[in-house]
Simulated scan of single mutants.
Amino acid sequence: MKITEVTLRHMKMDLLYPFTTSFGTEYDKDFILVEAKTEDGLTGWAENVAMPTPYYNEETVKTNWHLLEDFLLPLILNKEFQHPDELTENFFAHIRGNYMAKACLDMAAWDLYAREQNRSLASVLGGTKDQIDVGVSIGIKDSIEETLEVIGERLAEGYKRFKLKIKPGWDVELMDKVRKVYPNIPLMADANSAYTLEDIDLLKALDDYHLMMIEQPLAYNDIIDHADLQAQLKTPICLDESIHSFEDARKAIKLGSCKIINMKIGRIGGLTQAKKIHDYCVEQNVPLWCGGMLEAGIGRAHNIALTALPGFTLPGDTAGSALYWKEDIICPEVIVENGMITVPTSPGIGYEPDMDKINKFTLYSKTYR
């Protein structure tokens, strides 16, 4: 396979509803869309999930465009490779970090590889599921009553797991009131690194609410303090921001820093690394689920394909397009029925890019050959 042309598009799409976490509030999605073409006329697609601000991690839309343009694209354009694994393991091996920048080219290459094989992306990754269970992530609202109302709406739509964002001052009381109204729903808390070990008594209080997990309670780059915290909690800790690579996952599991891992393709450098972490977690009996970065349809399609792998035993964050966008950039849009998404079987990501919508939301584009 030889990629002869890549078009980067700077996209901006308004979210249907503001999404608030301990980092702040997002009102729109500002991202890079990647379109890669081969000498044989195939086209592969991917989304870059870096944010405009370095709040989730150190990468941003601008720094990723710089890495792609000046370093990563020159390494792969018009170069032969047989398998997408070669991008991560060979072409990009000497580039430190910048996982989100690497991931979007890895994902586009995997889409191309699947199309070349005339198979679905889920199939070539090793997926075994025809449908995947879907959960929903609910941001910090203006009131607990509003949160309860949203949970009721999503429960009626069939979602199978409910993740509530928490932060200091918006945690124990929230869970207490939610559990009184919804005592049996699968419920988890996501702290996005908002706490320290000084908050251990507060975090231990969450044990009373029978949560599936507490996601990333401590620092974004920590696995040591998480191990100390997990030893004192009944509730499983799930790591998100701390896991950037296979080695991070291996060490966190060895140290007992977590009992569950949230896999985000962009955060760990692409689908090649995701498969490697998946296989290790299966060996170690560590459950996985696929997190979300407020992706539009193409990024969401990659998440669906990954979640079809057998180690993803917990509902992920890949909710339907209609929860986030007035109109998405794929056809058909991602649809949830009874809390499940059907895994596409057509070649590649299984959804067709809608060029009219893509052009509508493009702020700037550049093609590299």
Rank of each mutant, 00 (worst) to 15 (best):
M355P: 04
S120N: 05
F162L: 03
A301I: 00
K37I: 09
T25Y: 07
I95G: 09
A50G: 09
W325M: 08
A122H: 07
K12R: 15
E58Q: 13
D199Y: 08
L77S: 10
F312C: 01
D240K: 00
M1P: 06
R154W: 07
D30E: 15
G256A: 07
K177Y: 10
T88D: 15
I32W: 09
P183H: 12
A301Q: 07
E352N: 12
W45I: 12
R154D: 06
K37T: 08
D30I: 06
K326H: 14
D130H: 14
Y280R: 04
P347D: 08
E327V: 11
Y351C: 03
T88Q: 14
A219M: 08
K37C: 09
K29H: 13
E58K: 10
A101D: 07
T25A: 08
P287W: 11
N57E: 05
I253W: 00
I243Q: 00
V286P: 00
G256R: 05
Y368L: 06
Q230P: 01
K234Y: 14
Y209T: 04
P287S: 12
K79A: 09
Y159M: 04
I304P: 01
R250T: 05
R119Q: 15
L148W: 09
V282C: 10
V124W: 05
T147H: 02
W110E: 08
L155K: 14
L306V: 01
M100F: 08
A249R: 01
P18E: 09
A319M: 11
I151M: 12
C238P: 04
I243V: 13
T128I: 15
T20S: 15
V136M: 07
E352T: 12
T345D: 13
I253C: 04
I185H: 06
I253R: 00
Y368E: 08
T318S: 07
A191M: 05
N98W: 11
G270N: 08
L68T: 10
I329T: 03
A189V: 10
A305W: 09
H278N: 13
